[in-house]
Design a protein around this nucleic acid. Structure first.
Lengths: 141, 141
DNA sequence: CTTTTTTAGTTAGATATCTAACTATATTTC
DNA sequence: GAAATATAGTTAGATATCTAACTAAAAAAG
């Protein structure tokens, strides 16, 4: 097998996509929010409430990381933290109104990113790449 | 355009590939070395000496980051730092014997990573994906 | 029922990486 | 030649993320 730059390219895309998102957020006056926060807000917009553990699983980060991420979202007013009545260990996270209204920004930025990244690339090509990328990921689990 | 998970998948691949490399290095008793160090050692193995700035460009990191990365490689005995006679601002980095012998490990791990990531994927498929990924990256510059 | 094990979330510490600012040096401008 | 501008690398501070360890609670085992 010939030497491949695939992983190096993927890494760079990841870094730049991350940066793109942060810059777009800053353009909208949204400071201190990074893609991982966006992920949390996104999944919370699909469900009324989620536990810290569920969020950690969904955004593929560790629990301590989610603690820090959520704490920041609480501080910035995007989410609320609540305890569970049944199991005291469990903490539920819910969206505030501010958090709910974030959905629009998030979707627009996501579309903007995709529009940029997929420039000059057909739907067919994307339909080829994505499943292969999913295979790469699965191979690394 | 339908919502795409492409970027999310790419990010996850990047994280896991990074982790794979670190784990493989640790298996070989090589501690404290991360992919960025590997990148530096790789490019130094192609040229006798390089400036900090050149290294920063090659591994797509900032100069301060390269300062920290190189300092660690110096401490661990993989590279030497030397001044330039012509321009006092310039610092040249060269491989030590230990750094040179790192090449074998690096190549093996790289191959091992590729073997894992490309399992069940044909050469043809990879030849399709890679140029598209390069396009994605170019679109994000 | 008691003890052991597992689980949810937090705390503490470490790390790679960035930005901004800086110092020293080199280059460009006038 | 002097002043202004650009450059190489470093320093300082901040940040997202991880691991290990921890506390408290719940579940499992006996």
């Amino acid at each position: 097998m010939k030497p491949r730059k695939t992983v190096a390219i993927i890494s760079q895309i990841s870094v730049k996509a991350n940066r793109f998102i942060v810059q777009e957020l800053e353009k909208r006056g949204i400071h201190g929010i990074v893609p991982s926060h966006g992920g949390i807000l996104y999944f919370l917009s699909l469900q009324e409430k989620m536990t810290m553990k569920e969020l950690a699983t969904k955004i593929h980060k560790t629990k301590p990381t989610v603690t820090v991420l959520v704490d920041k979202l609480v501080t910035l007013g995007y989410v609320y933290k609540g305890k569970c009545d049944v199991d005291c260990r469990v903490t539920y996270i819910t969206l505030s109104e501010k958090g709910k209204s974030f959905k629009k920004d998030f979707e627009e930025i996501s579309q903007s990113l995709n529009a940029q990244i997929f420039q000059g690339i057909s739907e067919e090509e994307i339909n080829v790449v994505e499943p292969l990328l999913e295979k790469f990921l699965h191979n690394l689990l």
